[in-house]
């Protein structure tokens, strides 16, 4: 498996220069009144790309179509920036034109 990502600072680089930072799951929740359940849900739970309810999806092919996810990557072997990009994990392809925001 190999693909490339577009670092907003350095441009298209080989995947081996980056570290995966997981799906975008929103900012860290406020801790005042945060229950353990809510906290661990935020830490551990991930969305299945293309739909929250895979069991009712149209099988593998069905959600393969729209399998895009927003995710974080760190350019550790380069400039050291964390950036967000949109990618299809089924094909590993980054969505054209994304990867520009920091």
């Amino acid at each position: 498996m190999t693909f490339r990502l577009t670092c907003p600072v350095c441009g298209k680089r080989d995947i081996c220069e980056f570290t995966f930072g997981g799906q975008e799951r929103g900012p860290r929740p406020e801790q005042e009144g945060l229950s353990a359940e809510e906290h661990f849900r935020w830490v551990q739970f991930r969305m299945i790309p293309g739909g929250a309810e895979p069991a009712q999806g149209a099988g593998q092919r069905g959600w393969r179509q729209a399998a895009l996810q927003q995710e974080w990557w760190y350019h550790g072997q380069g400039c050291g920036v964390w950036f967000r990009t949109t990618r299809d994990p089924a094909t590993n392809r980054e969505v054209e034109g994304d990867g520009g925001e920091g």
């Binding site: 570290t19 930072g21 760190y74 550790g76 964390w82």
Partner: peptide
Amino acid sequence: EWFRYHTRH
């Protein structure tokens, strides 16, 4: 990486 990750938002 750690500092920047946890302040990224």
